[in-house]
Design a protein around this nucleic acid. Structure first.
Length: 241
DNA sequence: GCGACAG
DNA sequence: ATCTTGTCGC
């Protein structure tokens, strides 16, 4: 096996992103997405990789499936994995997607009736340097509707932590309030969401696959008891329960 | 040289 | 991502 220099790796990954980007569906495709209170939606998934202190090679790949709208645990899968790809900002998917896909495939094989109807992904979707973040990548490869939920702002295409951005955050009064993340060319790539009344710092929601931004925003908010949506949050609290 | 850098 | 204690406020 040959090791590519990072510069070559990035070129290869960029072209792979460009080709997969064309397969992203940015609209609602499911019946439940068009119902006012998401009637028909029964299972919401969450995926994440977690690490331990000094080790960035071994990680725990986790998938949870929660009931909707009660957000109770229906399924949980944890698998220790050894990562092969490095973390490079903008290319998170190449590091994490293979193991998240494996988890979804294990579920599909063993208990297909528990497959989630939508997956909340820890990271960005279209709100990305090349409009193809982790949530898009996992969505296209799995075929499942996916939503990107990032806890930190990625500064991309003119969206930045400016005075303007800070004042927009300050203007979010209550849980559910949001404002658009608009590029310098005028395209809305996502929305900053105040996810609960008690949290000041927003989360950044963007389309992953097979869902509209409006639906993604409302569903994400309806999954929030605290700042981080339950499907993603319950993964972390899982380890000590 | 300095800031930025999803997870 | 992860290391970490207390502390302030509701």
């Amino acid at each position: 096996m040959s090791i590519l220099p990072q510069e070559e790796l990035v070129k290869k990954w960029e072209s792979e992103q460009a080709s997969l980007r064309q397969q992203v569906v940015e609209e609602d495709t499911e019946d439940w997405q068009r119902c006012p209170d998401f009637t028909g939606l029964e299972r919401v998934g969450g995926v994440d990789l977690s690490f331990i202190k000094g080790d960035d090679v071994n990680a725990c790949a986790q998938l949870v499936v929660l009931s909707y709208p009660d957000l109770e645990l229906l399924y949980e899968d944890s698998q220790m994995v050894t990562l092969t790809a490095p973390y490079i900002s903008g290319f998170l998917a190449f590091r994490e997607t293979p193991y998240l896909l494996e988890a979804l495939q294990r579920l599909e094989t063993t208990q297909p009736s528990l497959l989630p109807q939508v997956v909340l992904v820890d990271g960005n979707g279209l709100f990305h340097y090349r409009e193809f973040g982790l949530a898009c990548h996992l969505g296209v490869l799995s075929g499942l509707p996916c939503i990107g939920v990032a806890k930190n702002l990625l500064q991309v295409q003119g969206v930045e932590k400016s005075e303007e951005h800070q004042s927009q955050i300050a203007s979010l009064q209550k849980g559910g309030d949001s404002f658009p993340l608009t590029t310098n060319s005028g395209k809305v790539l996502g929305r900053a969401l105040r996810s609960s009344d008690s949290s000041t710092k927003p989360v950044y929601v963007s389309v992953g696959h097979k869902i509209s931004l409006d639906t993604a925003l409302h569903l994400t908010h309806s999954c929030c008891r605290y700042r981080v949506p339950e499907p993603i949050r319950q993964i972390r609290s899982q380890s000590d329960e």
